[in-house]
């Protein structure tokens, strides 16, 4: 059986090699914080990190995830302490329905790693997640706040 490393743990999964990582995470590993929205890498609700990079897990086959370090929203807090992006999200009361926010947060964490002080233009270029509730004003404010934290 394929073995993958998720949030620091090595897990065996009984799934076909071409199963999208999204469904391995959700159905085989019960990590349902990562969401299904489109299945074609458009909406970003399924964003996770593979070796630190934000990727859309609906479009990554299991075979490509083997041997790499995968991080999901469930693994973002360390030792029970929320990540500064999560804290900023709570402080700015960002989510409405909240469904897209796991992916949004994972995309933002990756952005801040690459650009610790992103400009609005950096945000516009990097954050392409769809939010049908339209939380973008709070998302932008929370990104800037997290960058300062």
């Amino acid at each position: 059986m394929p073995t993958i490393s998720v949030n620091g743990q090595t897990r065996e999964v009984e799934a076909e090699d071409d199963t999208p990582l999204l469904w391995v995470l959700r159905e085989n590993l019960g990590l349902t914080g990562t969401k299904y929205g489109c299945g074609i890498a458009q909406c970003g609700a399924c964003t996770v990190h593979i070796d630190g990079e934000a990727v859309r897990s609906c479009s990554v086959p299991l075979s490509e995830a083997v041997g790499k370090k995968i991080a999901t929203i469930e693994g973002l807090a360390e030792g029970g302490v929320l990540h500064r992006v999560q804290k900023a999200w709570i402080e700015h009361d960002v989510p409405q329905c909240g469904y897209c926010q796991s992916g949004m947060i994972m995309a933002v964490v990756a952005l801040l790693k690459e650009k610790p002080q992103p400009t609005d233009a950096d945000i516009d270029a990097a954050i392409t997640n769809i939010c049908r509730c339209g939380t973008f004003q709070q998302v932008r404010a929370a990104i800037h706040a997290a960058a300062k934290a």
Binding site: T32, T34, I73, D93, P95, G98
Partner: peptide
């Protein structure tokens, strides 16, 4: 603040 925010930021 909303009462349901925390779990929406952790995937819970």
């Amino acid at each position: 603040k909303r009462l349901d925010t925390a779990d929406k930021t952790t995937g819970k």
